[in-house]
Amino acid sequence: MNTDSSAFDFGPSFSTTSSATGAEVIVVCEHAANWIPPGLADLGLEVSARNSHIAWDPGALGVARKLAELLQGPLVEGRISRLVYDLNRPPESPTAIPAASEIFDVPGNQNLSDAARAQRVQAVYEPFCAALADEIHRGKDALRLVVTVHSFTPIYKGESRAVELGLLHGRDDRFAEAMMVRQPETLPWNVRLNEPYSAADGVAHTLDLHGCDNGLLNVMLEIRNDLIATAEQQADWAEQLAPWIRSTLKEAFA
């Protein structure tokens, strides 16, 4: 199928919820939505695929919104499916516009022209990056930490995953390592460092670009999506994560 077109509007690629001045933490949720602009003809996918984890991170946005509220920080969230453009990938990455994801081919992303790829970068990635950079600049006097929130499927390519929460890092491992050694005993989660993904899988772009390059501490939270399937579960996870993050920031980076 041919989805090369400049005749349609991609719509907003992000939404920002600002906070009062003085916030120490900014929360980011790149894969918050599974929306595909109508002009892309659903990328040639059935509805089941468009609603599945290949198109977004189910449950992540609910956690991110509550976490930002509890940490009293701004939130920047993606509003377009990562199959259209993965906001956690740089334009030069082959996985920024994936031709296939897990067991699914993505027909609308195959054989794209350079112009069509550039169009998605300009319409989706660049506005999101600019919005996130603006929020970081706005809070530069107090901001110390970037937290990105993601979710992952409990079964991937037929293999079950026992990990429930992954703490991931890119070039700067300090905050992830500090959280690992400060996991509250009251939280019996199976927490692992750099699982089920790591920077080697190309998932550290936001952390490195907007965290490290701005001199900010950073960490990615990967939560198994069967554990945050409801609004109540999402709120509960955020309520457990917020004090853990806050205490780590206070105790390890005073």
Results as ranks from 00 to 15, higher is better:
residue 3 T to E: 09
residue 4 D to Y: 08
residue 7 A to I: 08
residue 11 G to C: 09
residue 12 P to R: 10
residue 13 S to N: 11
residue 13 S to Y: 05
residue 14 F to G: 00
residue 16 T to G: 03
residue 16 T to I: 13
residue 22 G to P: 07
residue 23 A to H: 00
residue 31 H to T: 10
residue 34 N to V: 06
residue 36 I to N: 12
residue 37 P to T: 09
residue 39 G to N: 06
residue 40 L to K: 03
residue 40 L to M: 09
residue 41 A to R: 15
residue 42 D to S: 11
residue 42 D to T: 07
residue 42 D to Q: 12
residue 43 L to S: 05
residue 45 L to Q: 05
residue 45 L to M: 09
residue 46 E to F: 00
residue 48 S to N: 13
residue 49 A to F: 03
residue 53 H to I: 02
residue 56 W to H: 13
residue 56 W to G: 01
residue 56 W to Q: 06
residue 58 P to G: 03
residue 65 R to E: 14
residue 69 E to Q: 10
residue 70 L to D: 10
residue 71 L to H: 00
residue 71 L to M: 05
residue 72 Q to G: 01
residue 74 P to M: 01
residue 74 P to Q: 06
residue 74 P to W: 05
residue 75 L to A: 01
residue 75 L to E: 04
residue 76 V to C: 10
residue 77 E to G: 02
residue 79 R to V: 06
residue 79 R to P: 05
residue 79 R to K: 15
residue 80 I to R: 12
residue 82 R to D: 01
residue 82 R to I: 04
residue 84 V to N: 06
residue 85 Y to W: 07
residue 85 Y to L: 13
residue 87 L to P: 11
residue 89 R to T: 06
residue 90 P to W: 02
residue 91 P to Q: 09
residue 92 E to Q: 14
residue 92 E to S: 14
residue 94 P to I: 11
residue 100 A to Q: 11
residue 103 I to D: 07
residue 104 F to Y: 15
residue 104 F to C: 02
residue 106 V to C: 07
residue 106 V to W: 08
residue 107 P to G: 13
residue 110 Q to G: 10
residue 117 R to G: 04
residue 120 R to I: 06
residue 124 V to A: 05
residue 125 Y to P: 01
residue 125 Y to H: 15
residue 126 E to N: 09
residue 131 A to D: 11
residue 133 A to S: 15
residue 133 A to V: 05
residue 134 D to G: 07
residue 138 R to G: 09
residue 141 D to S: 15
residue 143 L to T: 04
residue 148 T to C: 14
residue 148 T to R: 15
residue 149 V to D: 00
residue 152 F to N: 10
residue 155 I to Q: 14
residue 155 I to P: 07
residue 160 S to D: 14
residue 164 E to M: 09
residue 165 L to Y: 04
residue 168 L to C: 05
residue 169 H to Q: 03
residue 169 H to V: 04
residue 170 G to M: 04
residue 170 G to S: 08
residue 174 R to I: 07
residue 175 F to A: 01
residue 175 F to T: 01
residue 177 E to M: 09
residue 177 E to K: 15
residue 182 R to K: 11
residue 184 P to Q: 11
residue 185 E to Y: 05
residue 186 T to F: 00
residue 188 P to H: 03
residue 189 W to A: 13
residue 190 N to Y: 12
residue 191 V to F: 04
residue 191 V to A: 09
residue 192 R to W: 10
residue 193 L to D: 07
residue 193 L to A: 02
residue 193 L to N: 09
residue 196 P to G: 03
residue 197 Y to W: 11
residue 198 S to A: 12
residue 202 G to D: 03
residue 203 V to L: 00
residue 203 V to D: 00
residue 204 A to E: 04
residue 208 D to R: 03
residue 208 D to C: 01
residue 209 L to G: 01
residue 209 L to S: 14
residue 215 G to Q: 02
residue 216 L to T: 06
residue 219 V to P: 03
residue 220 M to W: 07
residue 220 M to E: 12
residue 220 M to V: 03
residue 220 M to T: 07
residue 223 I to P: 05
residue 228 I to Q: 02
residue 233 Q to V: 01
residue 233 Q to M: 11
residue 237 W to C: 08
residue 237 W to H: 15
residue 237 W to S: 08
residue 239 E to A: 12
residue 242 A to V: 14
residue 244 W to E: 08
residue 247 S to Q: 13
residue 248 T to N: 00
residue 249 L to C: 06
residue 249 L to Q: 05
residue 253 F to R: 08
